[in-house]
Design a protein around this nucleic acid. Structure first.
Lengths: 197, 197
DNA sequence: GTCTATAAACGGATAGAC
DNA sequence: GTCTATCCGTTTATAGAC
């Protein structure tokens, strides 16, 4: 933890912000330069091509997101509670998922190295969700399908929110899904009182 | 219905194909020209700006998709059957939703006219799904939430399929959701008799 | 390691002949 | 209405001084 941030770190941070706001393809190295405040040559010293910068920035974003998700999905509370906590976590719906959005980013999908980083994020998350759902007593196949459904609710909720410009669209999708989920598994401690994020 | 296709129609068709394959932003007017086979001047005669071409092409794609969706969701069969038929319709998962993908397309989101076309598609679809779910006897709010969940499953399933490069990821999400849905409503055609759209 | 200056290609759009 | 030729800004990347 140095107080002075290296040119490299500032470049990665600026790239993360710009990628989140407008995607990888539409973000030019020049824009990253301007946002980071470093000089032209420094960028190409640390990251010879845009690909190299993108891998570093997307990788950092994936690490952050995965860390937070696994923390929510781990812990001692009942499996269904952890799943619902993950689903109901506060999210900036209108901004979209920083990582899910990259599946429509041609610059990412056309770059195997970048695509692999995105793939790893979702594979890991689906595996963890499947584990959590197996704890509820579901057979393997059903747990896997339901894990896909849960993650699709989040990703699709983001799409609906952005499409309709309605931040509540994601929350509505989650409510609809959690309603089915908890009605399907009515045995926990139903109307829970401790409902923080 | 002329056998010869007008330059305008060929331009719109080529734009629809390219937009579906790589998005609006990354598709240059020059690429549309090349794919359509018409000359430079013809494009700018019919569509003075890229915006004009995009509105025409995205509008045509939305019309097509809406027509097919409403046909599946209409009809005489029980509401739940129509909903499941919509969810399970064959889809090219790895290609992504031609319209949903546009919510990550900066060129679309930054263009109010284009964004409105995308918004209209989802608002219309959500409204229709809500109607169908109301036929199952659900109260208004619950029907609306469940409609959001259903559409999020499709849109999120596309995202998962593209992210993991697994065409079955969309199908898995649908299976997981339909499993919850049909278990929640084991009584197929109980309350309503007058179930038109 | 960091900077300024510049190159080569592509983007969107226009001019004007036919 | 359709065509060819061209303009100008931006993008990605390189060169070479400090």
């Amino acid at each position: 933890m140095s107080t002075t941030t290296s040119a490299r770190d500032r470049l990665v941070g600026a790239a993360q912000d710009l990628f989140a706001a407008q995607g990888v393809g539409p973000t030019s190295p020049r824009a990253v330069l301007a946002a980071s405040g470093v000089g032209q040559g420094s960028l190409y010293h640390h990251f010879p091509t845009k690909h190299d910068l993108a891998v570093a920035a997307v990788g950092a974003t994936v690490d952050d997101a995965l860390t937070r998700a696994l923390r929510t999905l781990g812990g001692d509370s009942p499996a269904v509670e952890r799943l619902v906590a993950y689903l109901e976590r506060p999210r900036d719906a209108l901004a979209g998922c920083k990582i899910g959005r990259l599946t429509s980013d041609q610059a990412v999908m056309d770059d195997d190295g970048l695509h692999d980083v995105v793939t790893a994020y979702f594979v890991r998350l689906l595996g963890t969700l499947t584990q959590v759902l197996r704890e509820t007593g579901l057979p393997d196949d059903a747990a896997r399908d339901r894990a896909h459904a849960a993650l699709a609710i989040i990703q699709g909720g983001y799409v609906l929110a952005r499409a309709t410009r309605d931040p509540d669209a994601l929350a509505a999708a989650v409510r609809g899904f959690v309603g089915l989920l908890t009605h399907d598994l009515p045995n926990q401690n139903p109307p829970t009182q401790e409902n923080n994020s």
